[in-house]
Design a binder for these strands. Structure first.
Length: 116
DNA sequence: CAGCTGACAAAGA
DNA sequence: ATCTTTGCCAGCT
């Protein structure tokens, strides 16, 4: 286990940021996968961390984090609701009706990619 | 100080 | 297959 797992403290947000920043361009991840990567099941707090990521440095690609079915649940929390979908499409991810198409193809699993 | 909320997910019925 | 319940834990009221 790396610097991730083995943690369940206020660093939760920080760990979430680390994982999210590792998401490659053109890929997306889910709250649960990120939470699991940290060693927790608090997928809700992952969303909270995203909400807190406004002004965080380096910037966190929160637009690449969606729920487990690929729906852009948090697009309303962005400066502009449409920005999330626009950025995803710009990265090659097709989004229709606030839902990521080919989700299983663009899905990026931190546990599988980071801790190898 | 105590309870409720929430960018979710997995298990039970 | 859908609906309901529980866990999760920081932040707010």
């Amino acid at each position: 286990m790396s610097k991730f797992t083995e943690n369940k403290s206020p660093d939760f947000f920080f760990l979430v940021y680390e994982i999210v920043r590792c998401i490659p361009r053109g890929r997306v991840s889910s709250y649960g996968a990120i939470a699991k990567a940290i060693g927790s099941k608090a997928s809700r707090q992952v969303g909270m961390a995203m909400n807190f990521s406004h002004g965080v440095q380096p910037p966190v690609p929160a637009h690449r984090v969606v729920n487990r079915i690929g729906v852009l649940t948090g697009k309303h929390h962005f400066s502009d609701p449409g920005a999330m979908q626009r950025q995803l499409e710009e990265e090659g991810i097709r989004v229709v009706n606030d839902k990521v198409q080919n989700f299983e193809q663009v899905f990026w699993d931190p546990l599988k990619e980071i801790n190898l």
